[in-house]
Nucleic acid binder design. Structure first.
Length: 493
RNA sequence: GGCCCCAUGGUGUAACUGGUUAACACAUAGCCCUUUCAAGGCUAAGAGUACGGGUUCGAGCCCCGUUGGGGUCACCA
């Protein structure tokens, strides 16, 4: 880390990082984590983060994919400094719009002998692969067309034989690079394939495009998932062939399924959108995903984005893959809800109402504010306001039979009716009023307060759990309380 | 299979450049609080750091090997 910072200082350049997804139509939570680390790194180090779309596979074109990505990032609150929607000085940021650039650099490589044309048919390549893997050898291109004469090449090109451009990996010393999270990583050159750089449709492959773009876009740190580690030597070779400075590499540990395989759709939700729809707060998702592979130490777990930026260090990223564990995400969600101020919660509550067939305008603002506040310690999701305390939004239309069985006695109707009268005739309406009068009534009835508390809870809420009874009564208000008690006394008789 | 990466309780992580009984959080169990349920507080159980060697006065931290897991080997990214 120190070395990197020094170099930054020397060339007086801010760190520039990028998130470079292929547009699959949705944002993967692993991608979110990668983007987040890039974002945290950029913000922490006063650098810039750009979004670049790696859409060089025409066969995988997905309509509206960019929009989906942008929407997810907007929801998550991750803002890029440059990108296809924002522009910037290093555009275009869609690789499909940079084809001429890649062609130019590929040609440069051909001229220097570091790349060559190849005219193999897919069938021949398939056979070659089959042959090699039958011999238990690494499937690798055999450099067949490297030895074509200039005449032959010109002839084929002129007659329009489909061709690709391949990287020419020559014998030499090991390819070595330093990874911020993993340290020194080395590969023997003969294990590196003559990767296709330009496909027969004229589009570049990832390997060429990302190296060219990272260089041209002045990317200083490449922070990406571990699945890229084994193709990094190809990239390193490209930088060397071009004579360019290499960026700093940091390969992040993978996000795993409970069975420790790479996090996949088959074993659960994988799109950011899914988590949003399930009711996770962006703060919680970000917080959770940040902790998968990184820890600020000092027992810090709950973090908002500012905390994360302040504490983030690439060097502290863990090496091993991390299992995506929903239980902790749930806990963080409740934790983030719990710490929201009630005004914020009110807005969230109002917004959520539409999904539960309620209308925010049917309730007074300060009423909802009290509800928001009193229930927040009991909610893992905002929808829990409706699932755990529906009685704040409508009078109970049924009563939990188990609670009735347990708490409702023969005399209950009479007792709570008497209490309703006391409430109705009393002066006041705060929780002390409800508590005092309940206790007085119990006393005059010669029974314990519990004989009233539990039936009243059932009467006003229909269930047996929730905030303190007197708080519920205060929020509901005297008239509603009296009404609900009388209704219940009748229905439960 | 080749290559590469990884390995601390069930899960996520901590343990300064090797230094006393391996720490925290989630989840689990119990207790306290609350005449409810949560939240909160307290406590418990749960790893001797995959295994085996080595270096060292001393190793979770360093070295070697083994095992296990993962990633990657496309005209996908």
């Amino acid at each position: 880390m120190f070395i990197f910072i020094r170099i930054q200082d020397m060339i007086n350049d801010k760190p520039r990082v990028r998130f470079a997804p292929s547009p699959t139509g949705y944002l993967h939570v692993g991608g979110l984590r990668t983007a987040l680390y890039n974002y945290l790194f950029a913000r922490k180090n006063d650098g810039e983060i750009i979004l670049r779309i790696e859409d060089t596979d025409r066969s995988r074109f997905v309509e509206g994919a960019l929009e989906g990505l942008l929407t997810a990032f907007k929801w998550a609150g991750i803002e890029f400094d440059e990108g296809p929607d924002k522009g910037g000085n290093y555009g275009p940021y869609m690789q499909s719009q940079r084809l001429d650039i890649y062609a130019k650099y590929a040609l440069q490589l051909i001229k220097s002998g570091k790349a060559y044309y190849a005219f193999d048919t897919p069938e021949r390549l398939e056979e070659l692969r089959a042959e090699l893997s039958a011999k238990k050898m690494q499937p690798k291109y055999d450099k067949h067309d490297l030895y074509l004469s200039e005449e032959q090449i010109r002839e084929k090109l002129e007659s329009g034989v489909p061709h690709v451009i391949r990287l020419n990996v020559e014998p030499g010393p090991k390819v070595v690079f330093e990874d911020v999270v993993r340290g020194k990583v080395e590969f023997d050159r003969d294990t590196i394939d003559d990767q296709i750089l330009i496909k027969s449709d004229g589009y570049p492959t990832y390997h060429l495009a990302n190296v060219v773009d990272d260089h041209l876009m002045k990317i200083t740190h490449v922070i990406r998932g571990e699945e890229w580690l084994s193709s990094t030597p190809k990239h390193v070779l490209l930088y060397d062939y071009f004579g360019w400075d290499k960026p700093v590499f940091a390969h992040l540990p993978l996000l795993l399924n409970p069975d420790k395989s790479k996090l996949s759709k088959r074993q659960g939700d994988v799109a950011v959108e899914d988590y949003k729809d399930k009711g996770y707060l962006k703060e919680a998702l970000l917080n959770f995903v940040a902790l998968l592979g990184w820890s600020p130490g000092e027992n810090l777990e709950y973090m908002n984005i500012e905390d994360m930026i302040a504490n983030f260090e690439l060097g502290k990223v863990h090496k091993a893959g991390a299992v995506f564990n929903l239980e902790k995400l749930n806990w963080l969600n409740s934790e983030h809800i719990k710490r929201k101020d009630k005004e914020t919660l009110l807005e969230m509550l109002k917004n959520e109402m539409q999904y539960h067939a309620y209308n925010a305008s049917d309730y007074k603002e300060d009423y909802l504010l009290k509800v928001a506040d009193v229930m927040k310690d009991r909610c893992v999701f905002i929808r829990d306001y409706f699932e755990r305390s529906p009685y704040f939004f409508k009078a109970p239309d049924s009563y939990d039979p188990d609670i009735k069985e347990k708490r409702w006695k023969e005399n209950s109707s009479g007792y709570i009716l008497k209490l309703a009268d006391t409430y109705e005739n009393g002066v006041g309406g705060d929780k002390e009023f409800f508590e005092l009068n309940l206790k007085k009534t119990a006393e005059s009835l010669g029974v314990g307060a519990g004989q009233l508390i539990h039936p009243v809870r059932l009467a006003v809420s229909g269930i047996g759990v929730g905030p303190g009874l007197y708080e519920i009564l205060e929020i509901l208000g005297k008239n509603e309380v009296v009404k609900r008690i009388r209704t219940a006394a009748e229905k439960l008789k």
